[in-house]
Amino acid sequence: MEIEAEANPMDKYLRADRIPHIWCPGCGLGIVLNAFLHAIDELKIDMDELAIVSGIGCTGRIAGYINCDSYHTTHGRAIPFATGLRLANPEMKVVVISGDGDLFAIGGNHFIHAARRNIDITVIGVNNYNYGMTGGQLGPTTPLGARTTTSPYGNVEHPFNLCHVAHASGAVYVARWTVLHAVRLKNSIKEAMNKNGFSFIEVIAACPTTYGRRNKMPTGLDEMKYYREHSIIRHGIDPSQANIEIGKDIIVGKFIDIEKPTYSDAFEELKKRVKK
């Protein structure tokens, strides 16, 4: 009897020789990757014209699994690297996929300024409330009271509301989903990638190994159940009203979708004016 493994239709977008991935069982990153691949499949993106840039961390490894030009940069610096790449090579669609610590702690300054400039990139920020790769330390999105290895008595810092940060900084597209909302997430990624300008999607993702088990959700399934019980879709809500707190509802949806000129648009105009 001859047995042939069935190929997954998404395999063509992956670097087969880089699989298996490094992620833990129950991790939300597989769902994010899957949603992203379905989005580019449905958008019929030419993989020669897609560049993925990431920083450091578990999420940062996504870049290495997708079969396109991919850049795994230093901690926090994915966005400025992507800015340079996008400006120097306007043919490329540039997507940054990185984690909450990378994008909003060490890289926070770059995030707000790229949004302010309206650089034409899509940023997918995977928020698992902690630094997973390094063992579960406190991050800029760790909810008040949550236990991490560097907040063993419970977090006393106020976390960022990432969508509020993105909106306040000038992003033209802002959405939030959890990994439970895989199809809605995919649809948002499609919308974001079609936006002209700085688009941001926050994905709340399970991290049972280093976050969940210290916060009464020891498996990926526990975290998914929590998302199901607590998520409420509120499209168009002011992101400032969508703070995340333990035990309270997680407000998800598409919050912002506006138009304004990108840095590239404005710079091209400028060049026309000053041409010798």
């Binding site: 030009d69 940069t73 340079g84 790449l85 770059h110």
Partner: peptide
Amino acid sequence: LASMAAILGASWGGA
């Protein structure tokens, strides 16, 4: 930090 990262990105972009 950003300046240095941006020029690396732009170099890979071909400039």
